[in-house]
Nucleic acid binder design. Sequence first.
DNA 1: CTGAAAGCGCTTACAG
DNA 2: CTGAAAGCGCTTACAG
Lengths: 322, 322
Amino acid sequence: MITIKDIAKLAGVSYSTVSKALNGDPRIKPATRQKVLAVAEKHQYRKNIMAQQLSTGRSNIIGFVLDELSNPLFSNISGNLHAELKKRGYQMILVVADDGVDIFSQLRVDGCILWDYALEDREAFWKKFATLNMPCFVLGTDEAPNSPYIKIDRKEGIYKAVQHLQSLGHSRIGFIGNSQNIKLEGYREALQRTGLGLEPHYVLPAHSSWEDGYFAIRNYTFGPESPTAFIGLNNLVTRGALRALLEAGYNVPKDISLIGYDDLPDMQYAEVALTTIGPPLEELAAQAAELIVSLIRGEQTEYPVVIQPQLNHRSSTAVSRK
Amino acid sequence: MITIKDIAKLAGVSYSTVSKALNGDPRIKPATRQKVLAVAEKHQYRKNIMAQQLSTGRSNIIGFVLDELSNPLFSNISGNLHAELKKRGYQMILVVADDGVDIFSQLRVDGCILWDYALEDREAFWKKFATLNMPCFVLGTDEAPNSPYIKIDRKEGIYKAVQHLQSLGHSRIGFIGNSQNIKLEGYREALQRTGLGLEPHYVLPAHSSWEDGYFAIRNYTFGPESPTAFIGLNNLVTRGALRALLEAGYNVPKDISLIGYDDLPDMQYAEVALTTIGPPLEELAAQAAELIVSLIRGEQTEYPVVIQPQLNHRSSTAVSRK
DNA sequence: CTGAAAGCGCTTACAG
DNA sequence: CTGAAAGCGCTTACAG
C-alpha cells in the first residue's frame, strides 16, 4: 500500500507537508498542494482511516447496529439512515446482532446508533452499552438509563389505530401479536381510553414473522363475539394474517378490518392495500442522523427525541357491518 | 478510554507484557497472565482494533458491500454470510452501495466481498476494484478480470427452469424482466437448446421491483399466442407478476405457470407457493466465507467457484392445458 | 511556507 | 520470563 511517505518522496516534500496538503491546510502554498495532489492522484493514494483515527480520534464513520435484516423495516431504516448520514459527511457501516456493542467497543468509529432490538437480557445490554465509550444512542427504545435516545411513541400510535377503527364503528377490536409488551400495553390502554371492551381472546398470540401472523388467524376460532377488526403487531405479521383471513373466505375490509404496524412500501402491495400505523421512516432516519452528529460534536441535546406514528389510510379498513 | 498502558500500570508490569498476556503469548508466566487478565476484565479493557490493525495489519473484520438492501435476497445473503464468517473467527461489517469500494480502500479490513451489483459503468468499477489492495472478490459476477470470483451459473439455472416447463408440456414460455442481460441470454439460449420458439412479445419489460413485475403483466395484452408459462427475473418481479395474473382472473398454475428466480422464504408464502430457481443461499454464503478466508491466508485458490442454481418445485407450475 | 518530532494504541523482534 | 524500543500511517503543535 502506498503511504504518505511514498507520496512525500515522489513529490519531493516532507511527509508532514503531504499530510497538510491532503487535508487542505491553508498554510501550504497552492503550488505545493497542486503538486502533492497530482502525485497522490496519480498513484491512487488512499488515506488509511485506521491511522487517521488513531492519530486524531476521528474516522467519519458511524456504526449502525441491528439484530436482524430479515424484516424489510430494517433494510428501509438502514437505507434512509445511510442517505442521511452521507448528507452530513459520514459513512455508515452496518453490523448485525449482538456483536454490535462488542465490535464497536473495539472498532472505534465516531459514533454509533443501535436499534432497540429484542433482547432476552436488557440489563446486560445496558451494562455493555454503558461501556461503549463513544457518542451513541439507542433508536426506538422506550427509555434509556441516563443516555440520549429516540423514542417511537408506539402506544400513541396504537391508540390512533384504535381510534380510527372506533370511528368506523368497530367495537370489538383485536390485536395480533404478543411479543412486544409496549404495543400490547398501548393496545390495552387504547381500549380503555376509548371505552371499548377487552376480552382475553381478542389478543392472538404471534411473535413477529409472516407465518406467525398467518397461523394466528388460522388457529383462531371465529364466533359471533369475535373482533370485527384487528391490528397487527408489525408488517410481516399483518400480511400473514391478511392472507389467512382471505383464505378463510373473509372479505377485508367488508367483513373484517385490518391495520398493520409499520408503513413499508410492501404494505400497499398486499392483496388488499393495507391501512397502517407507524413512524414516518424518513423522519426517523433524519432525526437519528441529526442526533448522532450533535452528540459527536458534543452539542447539548434534548432527549428523548420522540417520533409520533402516523395513520396511513388505505383499503383494509372500512365501516363495521353491524 | 482505557489502554494497555493503564492496565500495565495497574497490574504492575510493562505494557509489552500486558500485550503478550492479552494475546495468550505462552512465554508469559501463568500467574502474570492471570493478574493482567483480571485487571483488564475488571476495568473492561477493550482492545483498540484500529491500533492493532495498524501494527499487525490484521483486524479480523471482513467487509461486505452491496448496493441495496431492499431486496430480501440481500438480507438473506448478509445473514448467512455473517454466520459463516463468525464460525471462522471473523466479524462482518456491511456497507451499502458505491461507497463500498471507497470505504474499504480507506478502512483496511482484512478482506472484502462485493456483491456484483448493477452498475452503469462496469469499467470504472473494475478499475476501482483493482486498486483495492487487499484480499477481495466479487460474489455473483459472471466474470472478473484476473481476480478470483464466485459465479452463479444463472444461464444454467434458467435452462433448468425452461426444461421443467417444457417437461410439463409448455411450448410458449415467456420471461418477465429485461434488466439483466445474463438471465435474458440464458433464457434465449435455453429456448434454443430445448427447441422451443421465441417471439419478441414473450419478453415483458420489467426492471427489478414488485411494481415492475406487476405492471409488466398489467400492460401485457394476452392473446391465443401468448405464453402459457412465465419465468420471473427475480423474487420481487415474480410476486408482482403473480398478483397481476391473479387479479386478471388467471388461475396459477392451471391457466398459467410461473417460476420465480431466487428461492427466498417469502416465495413459498406467495398467494400461490412459487416454484423457484435459484442458488442455494446457504451454500453460496459458505463458499464465499471459505474463499475470502483462503485469500486472506494467501492460499492457492481455484477460481471461479461456480454455484449451480436449483429448481424448487412448489405449486405455481403445472401441466400445460393444451 | 515547510519540516522534524512526538504521539495515537497496539505488536514484536531483540536484549537481558 | 519480562521489558525497552522501534514501527505501523497518520496528524499536529512547534520550530525555523
